[in-house]
Computed example of a mutant assay.
Amino acid sequence: MAKLAFLGLGVMGYPMAGHLQAAGHDVCVYNRTASKAEKWAAQHGGRHAPSPREAAEGAEFVLACVGNDDDLRSVCLGGDGAFAGMDDGAIFVDHTTVSSKVTAELYAGARAAGQQFVDAPVSGGQAGAENGQLSIMCGGDQAAYDAAEPIMNTYAKLCRRIGESGAGQMTKMCNQIAIAGLVQGLSEALHFAEKAGLDGRAVVEVISQGAAGSWQMNNRYETMLDDKWEHGFAVDWMRKDLGICLSTADETGASLPVTALVDQFYKDVQAMGGGRWDTSSLFARLRKLG
């Protein structure tokens, strides 16, 4: 069992840290809103600290799942940042979905300080975090990944190193690009079924067993038809991720016309007041259009 720090107790980080404590690790948590860290410690029996640096002191692994590039920098850098508290050789594992730019910056910073850094964004949403069934895509030095993999497996159904530093974040971009197109396609199929006077549930029962089947179809079609949008990853966060994808595509020369279009559809959902709805709310946009 290891001594760990976990930074960020949002809808993903809160249960992920809980799995680590339940597995017998010694976990100290930090959250920007201290009351949530206190609540976690009371619920799970672990410890909490008032700063990332204090949480990271003496930890073999420091794991983070925060909001964006700036949030990640704030918990890593500066006098109260985790890097200032980490021992030589300690490993920082970043589960946040961020740009490859900040990953390169923090990987270099950790190495310069005698520490190690693994980018390890996750997919599977809140349900995956709560059930310990996340897919984790990693980049970084092989030795650092090998040491961190058993820790991550506590809440993973699949954990894999894709390549060197940044490869995990690039893979997460592929994930979000694929999801954007899938959810829009599913939304259009359900919209078409409604307009054609078909029973959407009966339609999905049939087509889900063929080539059209997907995780999104199996897990979201019923809530979509019922106008329920409180299940999983929020539109605001998806737009943040797609912005990273589109910016990186400009840098690499990749062409992402469908992703760019779906990003604008999510902008429409935000204008409808659906920034905190889950990503399947693309269907709500089509219903509003008639």
Rank of each mutant, 00 (worst) to 15 (best):
V98G: 06
G24K: 09
A193G: 07
W229D: 07
V11Y: 02
V118M: 02
A254L: 13
C65V: 15
A49E: 01
L282C: 01
G168A: 08
N68M: 11
A5F: 11
V93G: 03
A56H: 07
L246T: 11
F6C: 06
Y221D: 05
A110M: 12
G213F: 06
Y107H: 15
M217E: 10
E230Y: 07
L256K: 00
G210Q: 09
P52T: 04
V235S: 06
H231Q: 14
H95M: 15
V118L: 01
G232D: 12
R285W: 12
A104I: 02
R287A: 02
K101V: 12
Q216F: 13
I162K: 00
V269K: 10
D80W: 03
M1W: 03
Q133T: 15
D227F: 07
D87M: 05
C159W: 00
E54K: 06
D263T: 02
V62I: 14
K228C: 08
G274N: 04
S35R: 12
Q169C: 05
S123M: 05
G114Q: 03
T259V: 08
S165M: 04
G168P: 08
G210N: 09
G85Q: 05
H95R: 11
A42I: 03
A37N: 07
R73M: 01
Y107V: 05
Q216E: 12
D71M: 02
I207F: 09
G253H: 09
D199L: 02
F192V: 08
R32L: 10
M12G: 10
Y14E: 01
E205Y: 07
V262N: 02
G78N: 06
L225H: 10
A64C: 09
E130G: 03
L106G: 08
K172T: 08
A144H: 06
L72P: 08
A37M: 09
N175E: 04
V66Q: 04
T279L: 03
I136A: 10
I179W: 03
A84V: 09
G24L: 11
G79H: 07
E194H: 02
N153Y: 00
N31R: 09
A284R: 14
S208G: 14
R53P: 04
C76L: 12
N175F: 00
V66A: 06
G85L: 06
T33F: 01
G78T: 13
G109W: 04
K267S: 03
Q116A: 12
G213K: 01
R287V: 11
Y221W: 14
A271M: 05
A234W: 00
M238F: 13
M217K: 13
T259C: 11
T223A: 15
V269D: 06
S187Q: 10
G275F: 00
S135I: 14
I136V: 15
V258T: 15
G85I: 02
G290F: 03
P50F: 00
T223F: 11
R201E: 10
A143G: 11
L242E: 04
G81P: 11
V62K: 00
V183P: 01
G168Y: 00
G168N: 05
G58C: 07
D250G: 15
A211K: 00
V93W: 09
